[in-house]
Design a protein around this nucleic acid. Structure first.
Lengths: 138, 138
DNA sequence: CATTTACCCTATAATATTGATGGGTTTTAT
DNA sequence: ATAAAACCCATCAATATTATAGGGTAAATG
């Protein structure tokens, strides 16, 4: 399941995408819009900025704004950033790999190969689908 | 990510599948084999029994044993039983559906439709693959 | 200079999930 | 009758998640 953090991030990103022409947008505006606590959202937006999706401007008239084209923000990247691994097992995670303690031989582990398949199919979709694809209505 | 509970369940099931000819098998034997606490495993085996995968016999010479053919135990069923929903959003879960608070219109929600796709592809694999498929070596 | 607003850090608490434990009951074989 | 083992109940411990709060600093605007 996606965490609220990730959902909030996606909400914020879609909101900022829809309002790209309006210049910097206040944290407060977004948090009010979606009922997210100001401070919690602050952290999320900061992460999104550090990841290169958003820009920001301080001081009066400041706020956050999209840097990237929504088409260039795959859902997989957002989910990984906020939620971590997409894979169902650490031993099949591409970005957060860890060997599994129990299984002796990964190459011949039946579960490993099934979960690698699941990961591949999931990623195929989440990499293809971008922010732009969920903008329609939301 | 799969919980330890689910992983333990899969381990127990594969162990019992491999030893189907040996009659009832002690909780202790399985817990020693995989380093799972006896009590925790007890709960898991009980759930698997109630779900109809396992049978049990009390008293001396008792233990747990497979009832179903491993071919008839899809991974999706085991995961759902122990871990709950497979979907990434409650609003696209087939077995644990809940509407999402934020989104106004599910029919036109872009995220909903993407996650439904992911669910479908994931389920396609996890329904097709059974316990039997992960028995090879493990 | 004063105000605004993002930025950064810490801490806390409430809640949920996950994993583990302890103690006792019932069934069964010998 | 005794011992073995599943069964059942309650609770706790550890961890992660979600959210809130407070304090301040830095930059930009007017």
């Amino acid at each position: 399941m996606l965490s609220k953090k990730t959902k909030y991030a996606l909400h914020a990103l879609t909101y900022l995408s829809k309002n790209r022409d309006k210049g910097p947008i206040l944290i407060n505006e977004i948090s009010r819009e979606y009922g997210i606590s100001h401070k919690f959202l602050e952290n999320i937006l900061l992460e999104l900025k550090k990841a290169g999706f958003l820009g920001s401007k301080k001081g009066k008239g400041g706020g956050y704004y999209m840097i990237k084209d929504p088409k260039d923000v795959p859902l997989s990247t957002v989910i990984r950033l906020l939620d971590g691994p997409i894979a169902l097992l650490p031993c099949v995670s591409l970005n957060y790999y860890e060997p599994c303690e129990e299984c002796q031989d990964q190459a011949t582990c039946g579960l490993n190969s099934v979960m690698a398949q699941v990961r591949d199919e999931t990623l195929k979709i989440l990499k293809m689908k971008s922010l732009d694809d969920i903008l329609k209505v939301e």
